[in-house]
Design a protein around this nucleic acid. Structure first.
Length: 635
DNA sequence: GTAGGGTTAG
């Protein structure tokens, strides 16, 4: 019987660089070893050193080139072609030189090529070492090369490098990068004694990447020591998974332990504060940035600009933006979007023009900001112009969100037919959100017939979502079609819809206070309701009359008035009046849109009590001051 | 003589 031909250890796909001669093409005549290089030299320093040695006639040998490559691998900006050209000058590369070339490849744009070089190492009968595998697995992770990585794993075990903590950590990282977190876990659990802080961090990051926050928490709690990366991974894990409060809590715990945060942590915590609209929390991070003398990098500056804009302080946001030492496209996007959310449409458009004049190229998000700016300020012709510009001049693909902004802009401004036409002519099937936007406009314009058509269609598409019933019923209520209101409400009860509970948040006395409508859970509930009475009397004297069309219950008018009076927003305002100083601004965050009645009441409260009230709702900011709102009732 | 883990914007 014929002996079976041994299977190759590794079989790699044919690629552009897969010819091993690619790595070993030009013979070299250099023989002089390189004196020690300074740590992490810049690419220019390395090039200068290289040039001097060549010019002075000194040749290089494998050892010299190996050092040169090691030095190049350390420079983050090394062009890969340069490293390769140096490697190619060695006729017989040592393992040391080859390892460092793998390391350069791992950092290059073609990390997968490192496995080709690895097969060359094997082919030249060099014995790989732990460094080889660390670099090689790093390259596989970057290339998301799970097949090659798994084969390398078998080599690691066969050649006895599984006990090496660097190699094991690289394996954990490889599997988590390739979405095989269970494999990471297996590597992590084998030989539990062979772990260091990086092993724990890699496992932690693996669970975080996979969205397994519970498992990540367990790892975080069990790890024997934590460094700044452990904290940043956990904090970012919470924030990326939408567990914002836990992220902020984790940051607090870290600070209590006296640890110095790094920039990544600060940026993440700023983002969480921004998403939640927690100004005090964001301000605290800003004060940490200042007190610890963090340089105002583009990331940190942008995160601060975004935080202040999302927490209602648009002036502070603008100030920071204009004083930023450097900006990138994200900074501009954050500022344009921030201005748009505050209804400062013309300012946002002017900034966009400046952005273009400074030579930036807009991206998809930039136009979300621009179109939102037009939509919030009712700038219809400008909106049409930019919508056209983004495809015709900047070649940006239209996404559902861009259509959303346009449909909102057109329909709210009264161009409902044009909005319908836009939806109907879309290439992709329209998202129901677009029809829901149109339904909102039907409510504003009292278009019962079209609203009825769209509302019924949406209810048919998603009978469990209560928002469509509420909108349709509001359209009927505005037209005083009470029988239809009752019918829709009954239908809603029959369908057992999932009601999204409305809430309002206010930050006061170092805490976040959350209210729902009719809430009596707060420790100062009695005082809050007393204040609500006072507010009610004072605004009634100033001419306020309740707008109860948004109340769907078939109850008496007086009861409806009580329902709106106890909306979560009103409770939060009342609490704000109790705990803030006279004249201080009251800042509220809501998860839904401001209702018409609360909007009207807030305007009058701002006048009667001489208080600025800033409300961030689901869609935008409302600055209530001296009886007026920044949205000019266009929302 | 070479080493690893974590980054924002609607």
């Amino acid at each position: 019987m014929l002996a079976k031909r041994p299977k190759p250890l590794l079989s790699f796909p044919k690629q552009q660089l897969s010819n091993p001669h690619f790595f070993f093409s030009t013979p070299t005549t250099l023989h002089t070893p390189l004196s020690s290089l300074p740590p992490r030299p810049s690419i220019n320093q390395t090039k200068q050193a290289h040039a001097q040695i060549i010019v002075s006639g000194l040749a290089s040998n494998a050892s010299f080139t190996g050092h040169l490559l090691a030095s190049l691998a350390l420079s983050p900006s090394t062009p890969f072609a340069y490293s390769l050209s140096i490697f190619q000058t060695i006729q017989y590369p040592s393992l040391f030189a080859s390892n460092n070339m793998i390391r350069c490849l791992a950092k290059s744009e073609s990390p997968r090529e490192s496995v080709v070089l690895y097969s060359c190492i094997l082919g030249r009968n060099l014995i790989p070492n732990n460094h080889t595998y660390t670099f090689l697995l790093q390259a596989c992770s970057k290339a998301l090369a799970i097949c090659e990585g798994t084969q390398v794993h078998t080599h690691v075990v066969k050649l006895g490098f599984f006990e090496d903590v660097f190699v094991r950590n690289a394996l954990i990282h490889l599997y988590s990068a390739c979405c095989r977190v269970e494999c990471s876990k297996r590597v992590f659990e084998e030989n539990g004694h062979c772990r260091d802080v990086v092993t724990w961090n890699s496992m932690l990051a693996g669970f975080v990447r996979d969205g397994r926050i519970g498992d990540a928490e367990k790892v975080f709690d069990e790890m024997p020591e934590r460094d700044v990366i452990s904290w940043s991974t956990m904090i970012m894990g919470y924030v990326q998974n939408g567990q914002l409060e836990e992220g902020l809590e984790c940051f607090k715990e870290m600070r209590e332990k006296g640890l110095r945060p790094n920039e990544a942590i600060l940026v993440t915590v700023l983002s969480a504060s921004a998403q939640m609209g927690l100004l005090e929390s964001g301000r605290l991070v800003h004060s940490i940035v200042d007190s610890l003398n963090f340089p105002m990098t583009v990331s940190l500056g942008t995160a601060l600009v975004d935080m202040y804009a999302k927490c209602g302080c648009i002036e502070q946001s603008k100030l920071l933006f204009h004083n930023m030492p450097q900006r990138d496209i994200s900074s501009w996007n954050a500022m344009i979007c921030g201005l748009a959310s505050h209804g400062l449409g013309k300012e946002a458009l002017a900034l966009f023009e400046r952005f273009i004049n400074e030579g930036f190229h807009p991206v998809s998000v930039t136009f979300i900001g621009v179109l939102n700016a037009c939509s919030r300020a009712g700038l219809v012709s400008e909106g049409r112009h930019y919508f056209k510009l983004m495809t015709e001049k900047y070649d940006i693909e239209l996404e559902m969100e861009h259509y959303g902004c346009m449909v909102d802009l057109l329909s709210r401004a009264g161009f409902v037919d044009e909005a319908v036409e836009l939806i109907e002519n879309m290439q992709a099937p329209p998202d129901p959100v677009l029809w829901a936007t149109l339904l909102g406009a039907c409510k504003i314009h009292g278009s019962v017939e079209l609203g009825e058509k769209i509302g019924n269609k949406l209810i048919q598409l998603d009978p469990t979502y209560d928002g469509h019933y509420v909108q349709l019923a509001s359209i009927y209520a505005k037209a005083r079609k009470w029988e239809d209101v009752v019918r829709i409400r009954r239908l809603m009860v029959e369908q057992n819809t999932n009601k999204v509970a409305g809430w309002s948040l206010i930050e006061a006395q170092g805490r976040v206070h959350q209210f729902v409508a009719g809430d009596r859970e707060h420790e100062h509930s009695l005082e809050i309701y007393k204040m609500l009475e006072t507010i009610g009397t004072r605004i009634a004297e100033a001419g306020y009359t309740p707008r109860i069309s948004s109340v769907l219950h078939d109850i008496g008018e007086e009861e409806k008035e009580n329902v709106v009076k106890e909306h979560s927003e009103r409770l939060a305002i009342a609490y704000g009046m109790l705990v803030t100083k006279v004249g201080d601004c009251i800042r509220i965050m809501k998860n839904l849109r401001v209702c018409e009645d609360c909007h009207e009441a807030s305007k009058i409260i701002s006048k009667v009590f001489e208080r600025e009230i800033i409300v961030r709702d689901y869609s935008r900011f409302h600055h209530f001051k001296e009886g007026k709102c920044s949205c000019l009732d266009y929302w």
